[in-house]
Design a protein around this nucleic acid. Sequence first.
RNA 1: GCCGCUGUGGUGGAAUGGUAGACACGGGGGACUUAAAAUCCCCUGCCCGAUUCUAGGGCGUGCUGGUUCGAAUCCAGCCAGCGGCACCA
Length: 810
Amino acid sequence: MPTEYDPSAIEAKWQKQWEKKKLFSVDLKKVKDPYYALVMFPYPSGDRLHVGHWYAYAPPDSHARFMRMRGKDVFEPIGFDAFGLPAENFAIKTGTPPEESTEENVQTMIRQLKRMGCMYDWEKLVMTSRPEYYRWTQWLFLKMYEKELAYRKEAPVNYCSSCQTVLANEQAQDGTCERCGTEVIQKPLTQWFWKITQYADELLEGLDDLNWPEKTKTMQRNWIGKSEGAEVEFDVVDHDEKITVFTTRPDTLFGATYMVLAPEHPLVDMITSKDHKGVIEAYRKEVAKKTELERTDLAKVKTGEPTGAYAINPVNGEQIPIWIADYVLMGYGTGAIMAVPAHDERDFEFAQMFDLPIVEVIQSDDITEEGKAFCGNGVNINSDFLNGLQTSEAKKRMISWLEDEGKGRALTNYRIRDWLVSRQRYWGAPIPIVYDLEGKPHPVPEEHLPWLLPTDVEFKPKGTSPLTGSKELKDRVEKIFGKGWIPEYDTMDTFVCSSFYYLRYLAEGDEKHLIDPTIEKNWMPVDMYIGGPEHACMHLIYARFVMMALRDFGCVSHVEPFRQLVHQGMITNQGAKMSKSKGNTVSPDTFVERYGSDVFRMYLMFMGPYSEGGDWSDTGIKGIARFVQKVYRVLTTKTPADRSAKRKGSNKKVDQDSAVTAALHGTIKRVTEDTERFHFNTAISALMEFLNLLEKQEGVTVETAQTFVKLLAPLAPHLSEELWEALGGKGFVIDQQWPAYDPKHMQTDTITIAVQINGKVRGEFQASSDISDTDAIAQAKELENVQKYLAGKKLKKEIYVQGKLVSIVL
RNA sequence: GCCGCUGUGGUGGAAUGGUAGACACGGGGGACUUAAAAUCCCCUGCCCGAUUCUAGGGCGUGCUGGUUCGAAUCCAGCCAGCGGCACCA
C-alpha cells in the first residue's frame, strides 16, 4: 500500500464508481425522508470555472453529503440559466448563434463541474434555453395572462442612439452606454408587466416564517416598502380638478401649509396660472435634462417654482399655494404631496428656502432640535377636533373624518413596482402573444407551445427587438392566425426562467405538467437554498411571487419555495475582490491539477465561515495538502495490519487510551455542530487536532479510524472513499450513518483548573473531574504562587466554576 | 443621511460571560540529505526579567467609559471599513 495519496488517479476512480452505481440519482417517487439541497444554477459562460463557482458549489455539496449521512434522501440537482446577454453579445461580435455557443459552453462546464465530485443528479439537468424548458416559461406567461396578472403598459427603456439598441439596466449604469459611452436616453415603449404588487402583502408576511438571513429579509421588506396612511383630496381654487395625495401622517393635515406636485404631474399644465407658465415650463425643462443620479442626489439644495394656483385644505378651508418641485417623485404615491413643514424634514427645508408658513400641530416632550422639523409622535395642537389626541389616535380620527366627508380614505402604499418582463433582446424565451389586425393581443394557444425562438435573425442591433427581422416567425404567425397578424417581438426577462426552475428539476422532463402534484407535495419547499446575497431583491422575490401565483392557479401546494437560505461570502485575493480587469483572479485548474479537488474545496472551506467568505492564499492551500497526506499516512500505517473486516475477532487488539476516546467524541460533536451551521473551517480544525493526537499514539483502532473517515467524508469525498475501502469498510462511506457522540465519553478523569486572583490568572492545578467546590477552592489556595498573593490579605469572595476555574477576590 | 454587518498576532482565522490567539499559513532554529524538494522536531502577540534559559511580572481583541469576582463577548457613546437603501411623502 502506498503511503502517499495520489489524488488524480483516486478521484477519477471514485467519480467513475459513483456514476456506475448511480449513487446520486434519486427516484423522486420512492423516498422516505426527502431533503432538497439546491444551489443557484450557473450561467454557462465560456470561461473556465473560477474560484467563485467552486465556492458556490463545493461547500454546499459537503453540507448535502452530511445530510445524506444523517439519513436524509438528498436530491442535489444542477442546471443552467442559459438565456441572457453575454451569449447574445458574443453572437453580435462573432456571428456564432447563441444556441451554438451556449450548448458548447454547457458541455465544457459539465465536464469541469464533474471534476468537483459533487453529488449532482445529472439525469435531472435543466437548461432554460432549450425548447422543452422554455415551453414552461411561456406556459407561465399564458397563465399569468389568463388570470389577468399580465398586462401591457407604456414604460421607458434605456436606449443608446449610437448603438441603436435598447440597453439592459446593467448595460446602462451611470447613464452612459456600456459599449460606446454615449449618453443613454429614455424611450417610451409598450411592454408587458406582471402584477407582483398584488402579492405585496403576502410577500411581506411570508418572510416572518422563513429561515433566511435577517439581513436578506430586511432587504425584501424595504424593497416591498409597505406604508400605511391615507389618501386625501384637495380642491383647487377656480378649477374643477382635484389633487389627490398620499400621506402616512393624516394627523398633521391641519399643519399642511402648501402642496407640491412632481414636475411631470399631469395636472401641472391645467392649473398653472398664466403669469407663471413661463417659469414653470423652464423649470420642467431643466428637470427633464437632469439625469436620475443628479435628481436623487440628497446633498443638493432643493429647488421649485410656484404655479400661482391654490388648493383648499379640506380640514380648515384655508387656501394654500401649489408648487412644483423635483423632490416630489412621480413614481411614488400619487406624484403629489401635502407639505407639512413643521413635521417633515424635506418640507421644512423647502419652506425655509422659499419662506413658506410653518404651523406646528404636534407637541412632544422629546426635545425638538432648533431649526429642524419634529417628525416623531406626540399630542395634537392647533388641530380643532384632533387637539389633545395621541398621534395613533389622531390618525384614526382624521381618516374617519375624511371618509365621512368624502375627502379621502385609508390607504396602504407599496414601494414595489410591477415586474416588467419584456426585453428587447434575442436570446430569451419569446413572449407567446400575437396581435390581430387592430393590434389587440391574443395568447398563443397552449398547443403551439413551445413557441419557438426563430433562428433567421440578424444579431446586429438596428433599433428594434431582434425578432422583428425574422421571416420565419412572421410566416408562422400568419399561417396559424391569419394574414396581417403579427407576433410579439420581445422576449422575457431571464428572471422569469429562473423563477420556477426548482420545480422543473422535480418534473424530470414531464411534457404534460409543470410538475407532478404528489412530487411537489413531497419535495417542496427546497430545504436548503444556497446562493449569493446579490439576489436578495430580484430572483429571490420573483421566485416567491411565482410560487404564490402557481398556488393560486392550483399547480402547487406550497406557498414559499425556499425554507432555508444561506448566502456564501466572497473569496478575495489580498483583500480585494477578484476580477478580470484587476488581473487578480485565481484559476482553480492549476491547484486542482496539483492537489486534487478534495484539497482545493477543503481549503476554500478552511478559509473562514461559509457566509463570510475568505481571503485566498497560494501558500495557505499547502496546509490542507499536508493534512490530507497526513490523514492518509496516519490512518493507513497506525491501524492494525490484519484489519480485514472478514476476519473479525482476529485483530491484534490496539488499546485505546481514554483520552483518545474522549477526544474522539468531542471531535464528533464539534464536526457535527460546525458542519450543520456551515462553519466548515472549525470542523476541519477539529479533525486536524484529532489527527495530531492520533499521530502521537502507538496505534489506532480500526473503529476510531473508520469514524474519522466518516467525519471527513462530507469534506473530502474522494479521499474518504479511498480510506474507507483501505480500512475494510463495506460499501461506500457516503452511505454510512453519521457517527453519534456520547457526552459520557467526552469526560476525562483529570481536568486542569485555573486559579484567578482578582480576575488575573495566577496558577493552575490538576484535579479529578468530580472535585467538589470546597476541595477545589482549598486546593487552589495551596498553590505556591497563590499563597504569595494571599499572604496577610482578607478574602472577600471565592467562586468555583465547575470544571473551569477558581476565582478568589481579595 | 438612514438601516445592517464587521473590527482579535506578520497573514487567514478560533474563542459569544470563565486560562485570548485553537487550527493553519508565513517566519526563525535544528534533524535527515552530496544537494534540493518532501518529511520530522523545537520556538514564534508585544515588553520587562531574579541567580543564564525560565520561574515570575506588565501590557494586549478599533477608541472612551460602564456593568461583573471575571468582558474579545453584555451596555452606552465614538472612530474606521464593507454592504444595502437613498428626497418613498
